[in-house]
């Protein structure tokens, strides 16, 4: 079991290091990182590439925006 834990730890550390390199050198991942940092995940190119993938799963902020937009529409209808 200790062997399994050690393997997992190695995978985790290697992945974090490799991931850092990818984020540093790949423009899409870099932009995604900064979009998260600015709290604007919807502007991330990664999020945009997934716009047609499980469209019902949205960002929390988008959900709130959608909800308020729906409320506005219903007010208009009234």
């Amino acid at each position: 079991m200790e062997q399994g834990a050690k393997t997992l730890l190695i995978i985790l550390i290697t992945a974090l290091l490799l991931g850092t390199l990818v984020v540093a050198f790949n423009p899409a991942y870099r932009q995604a990182f900064f979009a998260l940092l600015r709290d604007e995940p919807a502007k991330s190119p990664i999020w945009r590439s997934n716009r047609d993938y499980y469209t019902d799963i949205t960002l929390p902020a988008t959900q709130a925006a959608d909800k308020s937009a729906t409320q506005e529409t219903s007010h208009d209808a009234e």
């Binding site: 490799l18 991931g19 990818v22 991942y29 990182f33």
Partner: peptide, 14 residues
């Protein structure tokens, strides 16, 4: 959490 996930996913992208 999401930042660590991004790093792990970046490696997993490869």
């Amino acid at each position: 959490g999401i930042y660590i996930a991004l790093l792990l996913a970046a490696a997993n992208w490869i």
